[in-house]
């Protein structure tokens, strides 16, 4: 098992290296950089030169990359020329908020998806199944941020039940800060929940048709026992994969929802950095997203072993 994990970490490192090069190149190929932003509208050549030198932009690209990468390995992603703060600090300050939002959303999506999917599968072909399947299709065909806007309209503007956006952390507001989390988390979970529900339904139906489920029924097994011991574990594998991938995306890509709800997370940080051409922050944030995504994928792969004894043995036996 250890060898398997180490090998997967090695693979992840290679991917991160390739991505870091690509991110670095892309960001540097976009016209306009920090200098054009900081130097104002009509800069003198001296100012431009001085700024270029200060940020090391006069050096060849490979050298710039090497410096940046060497720092990144030690956790130093550079300093934002705009705010003057370290990129790693900026990311750290927003990371918790994004994790909270993504975590809440993925739990909501999983609960909604599993409950709706299992009920639909057990009532296959009945009116409940038809209604739930229709509901899922509707949710999937509407973008998440639209639900966000509608929720703000209903719960904040009309009913004045929940704040329309922002988040100031538990330190300042204690548990009542959770009121800020409700709507963005629900909005962010919508399409994932619907997708999980469809997957769970298909997966459970697939399991129900397996010979070993009939065999279990022939032993007198039924109801919750059947679901727990014979269906859940085997049906969980594809669901787990998609849950993990979605969570990885949310950790980096909740840009729209964070904007709609003015949520101080990494998505907003990235958007702000792009607007101010803060190359250093954009680079750092993108690299961070990739690393997190890889980490989640790694965790999913390792968890397969727990669900599939055969994988566990073949990786544990050390091929």
């Amino acid at each position: 098992m250890l060898r398997y994990v180490l090998r997967r970490i090695g693979q992840a490192a290679v991917v991160i290296f390739i991505v870091s090069v690509v991110v670095f190149m892309m960001v540097h190929m976009v016209p306009g950089n920090v200098v054009t932003v900081l130097a104002g509208t009509d800069p003198t050549p001296e100012v431009v030169e001085a700024l270029t030198k200060r940020f090391g932009l006069d050096q060849p690209l490979p050298v710039q990359y090497a410096k940046w990468a060497a720092g990144a390995i030690q956790g130093d992603l550079g300093t934002s020329p705009i705010s003057g703060r370290k990129v790693s600090e900026l990311i750290a300050s927003r990371m918790g908020n994004t994790l909270l939002l993504a975590g809440a959303a993925i739990v909501l999506a999983a609960v909604f998806g599993i409950v709706v999917g299992v009920v639909a599968a057990l009532r296959r072909g009945g009116w409940i199944d038809t209604a739930l399947t229709g509901l899922n299709a509707t949710i999937l065909s509407i973008p998440n941020f639209w639900f966000g806007i509608i929720m703000i309209l209903v719960f904040s503007v009309w009913l004045r039940l929940l704040p329309s956006g922002g988040f100031r952390g538990f330190e300042r507001e204690g548990l009542s800060a959770l009121r800020y989390l409700v709507m963005p988390a629900i909005a962010l979970s919508m399409d994932s929940g619907a997708m999980i529900a469809r997957l769970v339904r298909a997966s459970v139906l697939d399991e129900l048709s397996r010979d070993y489920v009939t065999v279990a029924r022939a032993k007198g097994v039924r109801g919750a026992w059947l679901m727990r011991k014979h269906i859940a574990r085997n049906a969980a594998i594809p669901v787990l994969t998609v849950l993990g991938l979605r969570f990885g995306q949310m950790l980096g890509g909740a840009v729209l929802i964070e904007s709609v709800f003015n949520w101080p997370g990494l998505g907003r940080l990235t958007v702000e950095a792009i607007e101010t051409r803060d190359v250093v922050v954009v680079q750092g944030a993108l690299l961070y997203f990739v690393a997190v995504y890889m980490l989640i994928n790694l965790l999913i792969d390792i968890s397969y072993g727990w669900f599939n004894p055969r994988v566990r043995a073949s990786v544990g036996g050390g091929e």
């Binding site: 397996r210 010979d211 070993y212 009939t214 065999v215 669900f307 599939n308």
Partner: peptide, 11 residues
Amino acid sequence: FQNPMTSLNPS
């Protein structure tokens, strides 16, 4: 049942 390859729960 007929097929012992599919009539046992793999997990």
